[in-house]
Structure formats: structure tokens, C-alpha cells
Nucleic acid binder design. Structure first.
Length: 476
DNA sequence: ATGTCC
């Protein structure tokens, strides 16, 4: 993207003044280099979102933004139901409540380094991965509905993990307002055998070493020290969420036409928050979010089983679990007034600052853990939320490196087998059912996660706490 | 992201 089409506010913030049908300005948090690495379509999509009814403050893009369906990935937009606001299925994305959880293991790098190969095998053996894989349980009928309304709380009640895990999950592991009745039979059918599966694409489970600490006080609160071994799990709501997204996109396109909502792009299909369609989508999207939370909870338990095969002393405890594809009803203070807003974050991570009442006691003084997954073979980060009042993007941060190249182009440019050999030489052990998937996820197909995170910190979105270096990766 | 098109 050319910087000429934007107004520079600072080295880390760019603005698009409202013109035409824009109701609010656009704001992109990025360095000049990151702007230049962004697709030209990001600007168009930020502008399109700014045209939607009831949008509040501005249409935002995070430093890792890239082109997505309707909304940019890395987009943040909040809507007020009292002022004609809408909810958009494209503003959440197909992979509803895709997110990251980080687990402490109680192990040190020196413990794990000699056993990376058998650990990779144990994890790959236990954790179903790839397109169409099946998990350890079958769900249907009332049990499916209980999962959709209970989320990780349901999973813990079923024996997948501990009560203490729940305190360290966004919304305590259970998203309120979920409606199993708003999820189609087809969506439920697709999920029958998929609980506890990682999925494909950019989803993965990675064993990592804490390679650098930037903020000692916050790292201590999060229970992280240099050379600790942690686990990142990145996955979502699998077939169920995808089906919910697909179906409601269609429904919203129809209802927007009927209600005379003028859309700058048909991919921006949305529904009034007060409409039956809007309410049904919120209920179904929240049910899919619970599915994602339960899914990550079950996978955690499988990872624990794999770890104790090799390390009997391993104790996987949850640092935090936060989604980066969702729409949440949150209270935000604007111009001295508290307002309840529906905040869409699509490829953007909620980053509540210090003092937020939803945070567990031990994190409240330092802010919410913000979990940033890098690309395969590169670093990941633990950041902390700031709630800097000068940064009005509804306490949000980036979610990863962000693609710099399409899957198709990456597939043409690299060979999966060669990439695996190169990573192994650097001490990173990968297990994946798909060499094509590995090529599509080539580190070179992504932006530089270090640059994205440095920019997020410089822009005030979140602050760096710890850097994580990959050791073993189970890749979708 | 996704039973990579019902």
C-alpha cells in the first residue's frame, strides 16, 4: 500500500479522513515499512467498514492487517445498538473464535531439548490434526447443546482439565448469550467428531522456550521466566464455526437487502443488532465461540497426556486463552461516557489494560496477557494490555505476523519437504500431515512478526513481556 | 479458516 493515500499522524499511526459515505475516519497502526507491505485492499476495506451503520469512533486496522473477506484481517470496529449499529458475520470471519492459549509446563529448556523428537511424536500421536481429522469424543443432541452453551466450563465438567483453568480463559471459559437453537443441524453435524482437533491452515500447537523477558514484573505475574518451556495452541471452532459463518453470511446478505442497508461491498453483509437476524447470529456466534473454547480445553488435556509420557513431572497450567476472531459486548469510555458497544475483532486480540474487572486477580495489576503467534519457525510473543487512553481502538492489539503472500503464491514458491529440513537444521521439529500446508505456511509468506510486535508496542496497543522461540510444532 | 464445490 502507498503511504500517499494516507495522512501520517505519527511514525506508527495513519489516518483516512472521512469522505463519501464514510461515517467515521479510518485509522491504521503501522510503520511506513508495514504500510508498504500491506495489500492495497486493506485501505479499501478499512474505508468500507467505516461506512457501516452505527460504527463508533473509527474503523481500525492493526499492524498485521491484510486483505480478508469483507473486513480486513487485523480489523477492529465497534457498533452501538442504540444508534442503529450492526453485527457482521464477515467482521468476525469464518473461523469464529479462533484464538490462542498459552500453557506453562513447569519444565525448563534443558529438560526438553534432548527429547524434542520423541515429544513431537507423542504430541502428533495424541492430537488429531489436519483436514477432516476426528477427535477423542463424539457429540450429538443434548450433549452437543450443553457444549455450545457451556464452552470450556462444559469441557472441565466432563473431566478435560481443572477449575483453575477456567479463571485464565477469556470470559472464564464460557461466553454468555450463546444459543444452541440458532446453530443449524448441519453445523452441529459437522462438529460431531471434531471436538479436540487442531484443524489445518495456520492452526498449530507449538512447544516454545522463553528466550527473552522484556518486562520482569509482568512476566512474574504471568509465571514466566527465561528458558521456561511453554505451549501455544492456535485453533478455532472447526467445521461448526465455519458452517455458522457461511450460513449467516447468506442470511445477512438477504436481510440487509430487505432492510435497505446499503453495503459498499456485498461481502460486508450485516444485520441490525436489534433485528432477529442480528440476534440469532450473535447467539450462534457465541455458541461457536464456546465450541472453540471447549476445543482448546480438550486439546490442552491431550497435550498434558503427551507431555507426561516423557516428563512425569510436567504440569501444564493455563497462562491465558484469548480469541482474535469475535464480536464482544464490552463497556468502553468515550468522551467521558461509558458505552456498551459490540466490538468486532477479526484477526485482532482483545488487550484489556490494568485494573479491568474481568481479569483474574493475579493479572489485574499488570493487564491482560495478549498472545501473539508468529509464523512457523519464527518467534511468538506474550504482550500485556495497556488501556492507554490515547489509543482509542477499544483495547485491541495485533494477533500475529499477518500474511504477506497468498497461500497459492506460497505453494508455488516453496517445497514443504525442503522447509522441514531447513527448520530441523535450526533445531525446530515439525510434524504435519500436509507438505502442501507446510509450504503455504512458509515463514517467508508472512510479515516479520518482530516488526509487527515492535510497532504494536510503539503505537501503544500493548507492551512486550516475553519472546518465545519455537522448539517443536504440530502443524495443521 | 473450511468435509479447500452439495
Amino acid at each position: 500500500m502507498k503511504t500517499a493515500a494516507l495522512t501520517r499522524v505519527s511514525d506508527f499511526e495513519w489516518r483516512i479522513e472521512p469522505t463519501g459515505k464514510m461515517r467515521v475516519p479510518g485509522v491504521i497502526y503501522a510503520t511506513e515499512a508495514l504500510i508498504e507491505a500491506m495489500d492495497e485492499k486493506v485501505r479499501d476495506q478499512v474505508v468500507n467498514v467505516a461506512c457501516l451503520p452505527g460504527i463508533v469512533s473509527a474503523s481500525y486496522a492493526m499492524p498485521d492487517a491484510h486483505w480478508g473477506y469483507g473486513f480486513p484481517i487485523g480489523g477492529v470496529a465497534a457498533f452501538d445498538a442504540d444508534r442503529g449499529g450492526v453485527v457482521s458475520a464477515g467482521g468476525v470471519g469464518f473461523d469464529i473464535s479462533c484464538g490462542v492459549r498459552c500453557l506453562r509446563t513447569g519444565l525448563r529448556h534443558a529438560d526438553v531439548e534432548p527429547f524434542k523428537e520423541p515429544l513431537a511424536d507423542a504430541l502428533y500421536h495424541r492430537i488429531p490434526v489436519g483436514v477432516g481429522s476426528h477427535g477423542p469424543i463424539r457429540l450429538a443432541g443434548k450433549r452437543m447443546d450443553a457444549m455450545l452453551t457451556g464452552g470450556a466450563r462444559w469441557a472441565v465438567e466432563q473431566g478435560w482439565g481443572t477449575r483453575d483453568d477456567l479463571r485464565h480463559i477469556e470470559a472464564q471459559g464460557c461466553i454468555a448469550g450463546a444459543r444452541a437453537d440458532a446453530v443449524s443441524d448441519k453445523a452441529k453435524q459437522r462438529q460431531r467428531e471434531e471436538m479436540g482437533t487442531l484443524g489445518s491452515g495456520n492452526h498449530y500447537l507449538e512447544v516454545q522456550e522463553v528466550s527473552e523477558i522484556y518486562d520482569r514484573e509482568t512476566a512474574r505475574a504471568y509465571g514466566l521466566d527465561e528458558h521456561d518451556v511453554v505451549v501455544f495452541i492456535h485453533c478455532g471452532s472447526r467445521g461448526l464455526g465455519h458452517q455458522v459463518g457461511t450460513e449467516y453470511l447468506k442470511t445477512m446478505a438477504t436481510s440487509a437487502r430487505e432492510h435497505g442497508i446499503e453495503l459498499p461491498d456485498r461481502e460486508l453483509a450485516c444485520a441490525s443488532l436489534r433485528s432477529d437476524t442480528g440476534q440469532a447470529y450473535l447467539g450462534a456466534m457465541r455458541a461457536a465461540s464456546n465450541c472453540a473454547l471447549a476445543n482448546r480445553q480438550i486439546i490442552t488435556h491431550l497435550a498434558q497426556q503427551a507431555f507426561v509420557e516423557l516428563f512425569p513431572e510436567a504440569d501444564l497450567t493455563l497462562l491465558y486463552d484469548v480469541s482474535h476472531n469475535t464480536c464482544k459486548l464490552e463497556e468502553h469510555r468515550l468522551d467521558g461516557v461509558n458505552r456498551r458497544l459490540f466490538v468486532h475483532r477479526k484477526g485482532a486480540t482483545r488487550a484489556f489494560g490494568p485494573g479491568h474487572p474481568e481479569l483474574p486477580d493475579e493479572y489485574r495489576a499488570v493487564g491482560q496477557p495478549v498472545l501473539i503467534g508468529g509464523s512457523m519457525g519464527t518467534a511468538s510473543y506474550v504482550l500485556a494490555g495497556n488501556a492507554d487512553p490515547r489509543v482509542p481502538s477499544f483495547t485491541s492489539a495485533c494477533h500475529g505476523a499477518g500474511r504477506a503472500m497468498s497461500r497459492r503464491q506460497a505453494h508455488k514458491s516453496w517445497q514443504g519437504g525442503q522447509l522441514l529440513r531447513e527448520l530441523r537444521e535450526r533445531g525446530i521439529i515439525i510434524r504435519s500431515p500436509s507438505l502442501r500446508g507446510v509450504a503455504e505456511e512458509a515463514p517467508q509468506a508472512y510479515k516479520d512478526v518482530d516488526a509487527v510486535v515492535d510497532c504494536a508496542e510503539a503505537a501503544g496497543l500493548a507492551r512486550k513481556v516475553a519472546k518465545l522461540k519455537p522448539l517443536v510444532c504440530i502443524k495443521g
